[in-house]
Amino acid sequence: MEANIQPRITDETRPVWTLLDQIPDPEVPAISIVELGVIRDVQLSGKQVVVEMTPTYSGCPALKTMEDAVLAELQANGYEVNIRIVYKPAWTTDWLSEGAKAKLKAYGIAPPPRLTVKRFHPLDSDEPSRVSCPFCDSVDTKLTSQFGSTACKALYFCDGCRQPFELFKCH
């Protein structure tokens, strides 16, 4: 239910969304911060704009960078900007569009598998059952570490093409 909430884009706010869509995700520059899903709402009155953003992870160090980029981009286009950080609903990888997933794969990052609800127990496997390699599509892959170069990625190794790759974690 909540996981599927998509931001509302009106004809009036579309120009702002278009500007925001040009800002790359600082950690995964293949996709924009709009495609990442961290921009939750844009409210416009005249040249005053309120942008609601949400962090991917609580301690995501890229959030500040993204805020600064939003400020700079919109101010450069004559807007007065106010940024509000919202925590609800919590960001989920389900908000990544199919288009964004394709871009991730082309960039060499395996896109996140879809969320499946399960009970919480520390001994349950948290590995998606099939992760295909973004380079050769082989599913002969294994988890190297749940924690990759950034909070949102896990490290995998492909036995098909003998290459390490990153998975955008399901979250």
């Binding site: 962090p55 992870y57 609580s58 301690g59 995501c60 160090p61 924690f147 909070a151």
Partner: peptide, 8 residues
């Protein structure tokens, strides 16, 4: 990474 989550 776990530390970062907790700081957040």
């Amino acid at each position: 990474n776990m530390g970062l989550d907790l700081i957040g």
